[in-house]
Design a binder for these strands. Sequence first.
DNA 1: CACATCATTGCCCAATGGGCAATATTTCCC
DNA 2: GGGAAATATTGCCCATTGGGCAATGATGTG
Lengths: 198, 198
Amino acid sequence: MTETGLREAKRRATAHALAEAAFDLAVERGVDGFTIDDVAARAGYSRRTFANHFSCKEEAITGLAVERLREGLETMPEVPEDTPLLDWLMALARHQLSGGMLPLLQQLRHLAVDHHGLEPYLADVQLQIRRTAQDAVSARAGSNVSRLSSHILVGAAYGALMAVLDGRVPIRHPGDTSEGLTVDEFLTTVFTHLRRGF
Amino acid sequence: MTETGLREAKRRATAHALAEAAFDLAVERGVDGFTIDDVAARAGYSRRTFANHFSCKEEAITGLAVERLREGLETMPEVPEDTPLLDWLMALARHQLSGGMLPLLQQLRHLAVDHHGLEPYLADVQLQIRRTAQDAVSARAGSNVSRLSSHILVGAAYGALMAVLDGRVPIRHPGDTSEGLTVDEFLTTVFTHLRRGF
DNA sequence: CACATCATTGCCCAATGGGCAATATTTCCC
DNA sequence: GGGAAATATTGCCCATTGGGCAATGATGTG
């Protein structure tokens, strides 16, 4: 499934360097305060190579988040086969959010405020998050849960995450001002909600 | 809130003409089988005017769906003040899906298969659908429903819709082959599910 | 080691985005 | 109604971008 060779590792390293350069430049100068050439130069690659990895600036800027999503899947620890689906989904959510994914997404949303052109690519990241969770759930659910209801379940959890990203539910990060729930409290609240139903 | 003057009407007309031209060309020739100049020419406007309305081809192609979403909101019929939130959300969903929105979204997804660059813009449309529903629900829910749970509810309904768009749940259109549920049966199933909880 | 595969790069050019200014139309206010 | 302000359309122009092609070098396979 997943490539493991040296070649693939180098490819990922290149993509990472480019994505990081793009993200940093976006934070420093704003999304339209730099060109693709600037990104390539900072990362130490040619503009042509940039085009081999990303279709545009915006895709590169969101690249770190996509990367982290994929890595989160690869490093997801094993859980007992008979773990209830809801518990497992909560574990997946906790694992994904533990690696600084949330602040990253929030910063991307902040960038999107000033540069509307980033929105679609951020929307795509969010879509990939939902799809990733959906695929994982579908694969694990088997025939225990009907197809449609698993989509409803994932959508519900996704909706809660979006509430955070849209700033409707404040979250308190480790070294943050003391407003809102911690990530763990948030997850507990959400999944308690899901368990009890509407 | 919504502009109603002649100027705004004309502006919408040009945007519609451009979006329609872009969508039709995409269906006829594929997403990369034409240029922005082609779109402008077919709609009878200049390339420069196209740029005043859309940032790129992809945004124009999905323009019809965004338009329809906005119109759906504007034409949403009034319902009694004391209608339960779930019933109201179902009415909103039915109203939005009644205007041929579903086939349009499905065709866009079909286009995105061959042209990956369309994905982010389609993802953005889907994000706007969820946000639109969320804003409407939040505005109507008032303090009846806690903030977070309304997001979970909308997310759940959204997840069901995505199951359809992802082709996981077949839907039968009026003059279609007889496989899957009708839109009404689908909505009934979903909202029965939501009512009963997990 | 020989060969196939693939990432990086330069070269090149069509396509794109976006600023600026001119013109035409709509809106606003008197 | 009439004049002024706002704004949609357009042409002009050029920096930026996307992507094909071929050369080169690194990686994987037998």
